[in-house]
Design a protein around this nucleic acid. Structure first.
Lengths: 117, 117
DNA sequence: TCTTTGACTTACCAAAAGTAAGTATAAAAG
DNA sequence: CTTTTATACTTACTTTTGGTAAGTCAAAGA
């Protein structure tokens, strides 16, 4: 039983804090769909993420070594993102959650409705 | 390949949006540690969550049917929270991520340092 | 010369989360 | 018999995070 309250030293808190923001897990999922992806592709795929937050999310993932960023020196610019080996390890874990989501969304939506009634 | 951009209809987005906030996954994890838990126990276990956000997080989880909330009519008040069957299904999936975190935190911390240098 | 292209930045605004104080009520302490 | 303590919250206010829309850069094409 790890010490969640020791934020610096606790690996769970350290990693979970990074995943626990509005877009990170979804970005990882999307990047898992193809070998590599350009900025605007990811942006369109998600649809409602702002360019600003996509930039921020990608930078953090890059800093943690979960994705790599390759810049081609052309104009207009071309930048490709892809999961690193480390990022690919994390992918199936998040994907398992999405499969659970698929199985149980109906139930959850129903629960929400009941709760608000 | 699901349509992530259709937020209403996409189960992945629907569930991931709920998990993608600052505390939800951690609260589930903590509740998974014992059969049931009182408000202040959860609060202490996490350490740096505010009472306000713990309340909000618990209410959302309850609305989705992932946890149950039992109020004992005593004074001072006593309220017990525990994972429902649905919540217990989700627990190991999040826990798998924490195990991954344990295994790779050193590497990730190192990556972050390199990136900021 | 003017528009288009792609991956961003930036300034400003809105939403989520943090902080600290307050509420309710009865039993226990003084 | 007045004050303190206990627990699970609310509430008003501040700070942090995220959203919006416009701007930047440099070359290729009309």
């Amino acid at each position: 039983m790890s010490d969640f309250s020791n934020i610096e030293a606790c690996p769970v808190r350290n990693v979970l804090d990074r995943l626990s923001d509005k877009w990170t897990m979804l970005v990882i999922l999307v990047l898992g769909e193809s070998k590599e992806m350009r900025f605007n592709e990811i942006h369109k795929r998600i649809g409602d993420i702002s360019e600003k937050m996509l930039t921020v999310s990608l930078r953090k993932l890059e800093a943690d070594g979960l994705i790599s960023r390759e810049v081609y020196p052309v104009i207009p610019p071309k930048v490709e993102y892809k999961l690193t080996a480390l990022g690919q390890e994390l992918l199936p874990l998040i994907d398992t959650i999405t499969q659970w989501a698929d199985r149980h969304m109906q139930q959850i939506l129903q629960n929400r409705q009941q709760y608000n009634a």
